[in-house]
Nucleic acid binder design. Sequence first.
DNA 1: ATGTTTGTTCCGAT
DNA 2: CATCGGAACAAACA
Length: 274
Amino acid sequence: MPELPEVHTIITDLKNSILGYTILKSLASDRYTIHPDKLSFINGIEGRTINNVNRVAKNILLELDNGRYIHFHLAMTGRLLLREDTKTKDNWTHLAMKLGNGQDIKYLKFTDMRMFGKIGLVDETELTTIRNAHGPDALESNLTTDRFLKLIKSKNSNIKNILLDQAVISGIGNIYATDALFMANINPHTKTKVITSNQAEKLLNAIKTILSESIQHRGSTLPDRMYVDIFGKEGTHQKYFRIYMKEKCPTCKTNVVVEKISGRSTYYCPTCQF
DNA sequence: ATGTTTGTTCCGAT
DNA sequence: CATCGGAACAAACA
């Protein structure tokens, strides 16, 4: 699924494409769970204008002119697609919205093959709940090494798990956690309690560097093409993966170890990461 | 057929 | 009561 850079790309493109557009009509599938329910969702969004688009962790929020927000989470296989007309048939479409600004018409669709994602209409209180469920954003400028160190030591687990825990620090997923640990020369099994301040600084820098690079590359699209931007185009950061999906360490050519950590494929170099 | 998959949440064990 | 780790959620592909 989309991690922070992919969601960031979607948010940026949406801001440039649909601000000031009104939701003229919407069509929702019966197979998908919509919060609070399909009818109140549709009644709550039709006729409303989109005033802003924001990201909270990997959540996408469209701010409406009635103080409420359309909430999307793409999970593993969700997509938001913006179409100029209705000719394109997109598989697994669970919500389609007709948008207009008095001049032109656009169609915004939410599709999700595996249906782990979320569609909802939330108020300010519910948005606060979503915000409070997440730790600081990985790219937040006031996230210092000291604060990062305290955060990762707040739980007793291995560093790979902690990086994926959105309640600790938000925005990082399996791919970027894997690459950041390689860049910081930290073995993914390392318990956070033994991580030093120097290691934390190096890791935080690696996280910020990798996420920023990926944003420059408009995110990563894996061979299954599950992530594409709102125009249906692939990202290019997969060309710049450091160790994710690699067979040999790019630094020392040792065979990369692939193993599951908490059910997620983790790649690391047994020589360079300790 | 079996094993994969970019995420999150819930439930059981400790 | 808090914390941790694995299973489950569902579908397509190799």
